[in-house]
């Protein structure tokens, strides 16, 4: 489909995005980001394994947590994969892998790219979407993603200090904050879906009911695995319903 020597096909006004978007150098950077995350994962798992025995947490529980996290993310990961595949034509494989698959999220990155293309008087995927527009859009969404990481790098140590001094002065409030924050975040994210359309409204209900049923069955029948798979099952049930509601 694309020429193996992609760089040879570089031409700012060409609309053949894939010719530039699959440059070997980009692939190297993407694989580098994957490798960095993999190394981070290994280092973190080691640090957790070293700390766990001292807080009377058996290593078995760490393994359980790892497995639960892995299983719970199968559904969301496959959903991200589907969305990523849909965007391959726009951005090429390396950019999709690093921007939509990792670091960012499909919604934020596509919006950023489309805003950036707009400043060049172009729209994503249209006749005006040239290699030059792609280069600027990719640059803008990468810089935006970099700002997120930069803010995290700067703010995390400060927040940690603040949290520590708060924990000393008022331990009860520190015990309450994560619970309240988590409930707040997911209430907000869920309720924001409700007014989008009737289908969204119904799907939130279906997904919630499926989870309720899975958790009830897991408890009633003492099937612990069901608790771990509940999220994946609920997503599948809701998405299958979505397919029929959407095409009906």
């Amino acid at each position: 489909m694309q020429t193996p020597l992609a760089v040879a096909a570089a031409d700012p006004s060409s609309t053949n995005i894939w010719a530039i978007a699959n440059t070997p150098f980009l692939w190297i950077c993407v694989l580098g980001v994957f490798a960095v995350i993999f190394v981070q994962t290994v280092l973190y798992a080691k640090a957790a394994t070293a700390a766990a025995p001292h807080i009377e947490m058996p290593v078995r529980e760490l393994k359980e947590a790892f497995r639960a996290g892995a299983v719970a993310s199968i559904g969301p990961s496959l959903a991200v994969v589907l969305v990523a595949i849909a965007l391959l034509a726009l951005f090429g494989t390396p950019a999709v892998l690093v921007r939509i698959g990792l670091i960012g999220s499909a919604a934020a990155e596509t919006a950023s790219a489309s805003i950036a293309a707009g400043t060049m008087g172009a729209s994503l995927g249209g006749d005006s979407y040239t290699q030059q527009v792609f280069a600027v859009a990719f640059m803008a969404m990468s810089l935006s993603g970099a700002m997120w990481m930069l803010c995290t790098l700067i703010m995390t140590p400060l927040l940690k200090k603040g949290g520590k001094s708060l924990a000393k002065r008022n331990p009860a409030v520190m015990a309450l904050i994560p619970t309240a924050a988590l409930l707040g975040a997911f209430s907000a994210l869920t309720i924001a879906e409700l007014p989008k359309s009737n289908v969204h409204l119904i799907l939130v209900g279906i997904s919630a009911a499926a989870m309720g049923l899975c958790l009830y069955l897991a408890k009633a029948l003492h099937q612990k695995w069901l608790k771990e798979w509940a999220l994946g099952i609920s997503i599948v049930i809701a998405l299958v319903s979505a397919y029929y509601l959407h095409t009906a």
């Binding site: 969305v83 879906e193 989870m211 997503i235």
Partner: peptide
């Protein structure tokens, strides 16, 4: 369908959990 409806399909279940 996945692109349009992944968030509601996920969020309802996560909130309940």
């Amino acid at each position: 369908v996945a692109r349009l409806y992944i968030l509601p399909s996920l969020m309802g279940a996560v909130l309940v959990q």
